[in-house]
Nucleic acid binder design. Structure first.
Lengths: 220, 220
DNA sequence: ACCTGAACACCGTTCAAGT
DNA sequence: ACCTGAACACCGTTCAAGT
């Protein structure tokens, strides 16, 4: 079918999409997204940068394949925790997605910057919409709930991973916010400062996720 | 106070933060984030790229200033639509934030990639938390609701602007999804296809926003 | 068929030196 | 004090040529 593969004619390939994506995800975990360049990835595979373009049309294409692979096993992980009603299953799916993004350095940034239509992504979407439909929601609401859940999860995890990295670069975040708040106005921020600067991101995620699920319950 | 400003000694400055941010936002609207380079921005200001580093420590610093400026007027715009109870005011604030991000090309990407603690950002946060506290929510919930609202809005608008751009690059999105769905599995996606591929992003945003607000109402 | 080598057209950032 | 000029250390991507 495709150019690189099929009846082994000519030289055997030294790299392929599968191994390249694996190596790229390893490099991502070690060095972060900003350090993930086509040249460094090629280096890690003992190949020249240009060789990668026989398997990925662009760097974006590679990043999409990485995002697709990050979603591997998300539906199964959520199914393991299921057994409950629609709201518990939806909650489990969103938690599994956040966990998948968190499991790799800059996972949310990779995911947010790409738009894969691979089997893992479609399988996740199909499962979420399926749970909603089985619960009796109209098809339109099921589709829109998928986007709400996914967009919230990506938005939250983007923030969470940015905060985690900012921590390692020196604790600028709590200090900056506290200083700005201390300096006069922003009475409400001052009151909410403990929760505002909390690093319990799981609790923050659960709060938002619960709002969305309860919003759905009210609509049902 | 700071190095570039104060008693006009030596050469008068040909550029400053204010004009640089304005020019950068213009360039963003014309060419998009990927084309916004320090060199091109310097060109647009008839200056060498290195000169920008007297006003912004890094490109990230410039992007944060751009994000902060994008939030200018958001609280006022929401106040104009206010007059209602806490849920209407929260809704107006979230809508105003989405509108601000949508008003510039790649606005959500600029915003998501930065973490400003400027007056516009803090003012927005303070207003949201203030609305929640005035409605009788505990301080913790008020702070967490701010993050839920902001993270959902950023996540949604990121998706929305990516879809709008994908449209201009050729309508790949509906075709790809439809093809994948047509090919066998994914029965639930097939059922939800109309809503899944809809380009009515305002309706999609309102759906998610309503879920969050109703979730808050249920918790109150 | 698969990969190398080398190039093209760029980047962000720094800093001595000019004015 | 403010900016230029030039460099440093890179980028993503392309493509003729080798094997």
């Amino acid at each position: 079918m495709s150019s690189p593969s099929s009846p082994a004619r000519g030289r055997p390939a030294r790299i392929d999409r599968e191994r390249t994506v694996r190596t790229a995800l390893d490099l991502l975990d070690r060095s972060g997204l900003d350090a993930l360049t086509m040249r460094r990835l090629a280096d890690a595979m003992d190949v020249q940068a240009g060789a990668l373009y026989r398997y990925f049309a662009t760097k974006q294409d590679l990043l999409a394949a990485m995002a697709e692979r990050m979603m591997d096993g998300v539906v199964d992980a959520a199914a393991g925790t299921c057994g409950g009603d629609w709201s518990e299953r939806l909650t489990a799916l969103a938690r599994a997605m956040r966990a998948a993004l968190l499991s790799r350095r800059d996972g949310a940034r990779v995911f947010a910057g790409t738009h894969s239509t691979g089997a893992n992504m479609l399988g996740f979407a199909d499962t979420v919409v399926g749970v909603m439909r089985a619960a009796g929601f109209p098809d339109d609401d099921a589709a829109r709930a998928l986007y709400t859940l996914a967009n919230f999860t990506v938005g939250h995890t983007l923030e969470e991973q940015a905060a985690l990295q900012g921590e390692n670069d020196g604790p600028a975040d709590p200090g900056l916010l506290a200083d700005a708040v201390a300096g006069g106005t922003y009475a409400h921020l001052a009151a909410g400062l403990p929760a505002l600067t909390s690093t319990d991101f799981t609790r923050l995620f659960e709060f938002g996720l619960n709002l969305i699920v309860e919003g759905l319950r009210a609509r049902r």
